[in-house]
Nucleic acid binder design. Structure first.
Lengths: 110, 110
DNA sequence: ATTTATTATCGTATATTTGCGATTAACTAT
DNA sequence: ATAGTTAATCGCAAATATACGATAATAAAT
């Protein structure tokens, strides 16, 4: 009686929220986003100067944030200028709001 | 010139937010939390009935949510009654709010 | 003491993530 | 054309995550 599996069809919203959450699920990436918000934009090299991680590692984290849609990269040769993707950031914000809404989970319980 | 590494000392808040995010970073766990919020509580078996996943897999996801502090489990032999951990849920809510605050990232950019 | 019901844990396989150094690619400037 | 600067990608290793079936644990009820 194996409960076959793979693919479960999650809703678009669930998929999206999981994606965003996963991207936020590493301290380094949170630091990057925080830095990015303070500076409004930054280059890869700025982060390499700030973080005690190899350039390749930081580049990888940036890639993940970009693939999750949370940041954009713009070519400014020979640099790359990163900034937060406002559209998706708002989308993420809304999705997290629904989760943490009062009536999502305000129960007397256990 | 290796940028030694491991351990980076992230702030408590960053660690906590990463932890919560990671726990939310899988669709199945979001479904579980959603279910849990609709029912206010549930047993493992309820989820096994609902989700197309093996009992052991679901138990594992519950464990992760529990270890992240997002849910509590109470023994009601032979069942286990799960519910959302309101205290940590609020904590998570606040942490995510700080991230998605207006002034965290509302810039003209790129 | 045995059986039943429920759930956690173990062992395993596979996939993904995280990190590194080395290399390549892209574009400037000489 | 060559050299310089910056960042992405490749290849690798180690750790973690995700799924499963099988087994163990827990407590109730017979």
């Amino acid at each position: 009686m194996s409960k076959t599996l793979q693919q479960i069809d999650y809703s678009k919203e669930t998929e999206a929220l999981a994606r965003f959450s996963k991207a936020l699920g590493h301290p380094t990436r949170l630091i990057i986003l925080k830095y990015l918000s303070n500076q409004s934009y930054c280059y890869t090299g700025d982060l390499v100067d700030v973080l005690p991680l190899a350039q390749s590692t930081i580049s990888q984290h940036l890639k993940e944030l970009k693939e999750a849609g949370l940041i954009d990269g713009e070519l400014k040769p020979p640099k790359v200028k990163y900034c937060i993707n406002q559209k998706n950031w708002k989308k993420a914000s809304k999705l997290f709001s629904t989760i943490f809404d009062e009536d999502f989970t305000d129960f007397s319980c256990c």
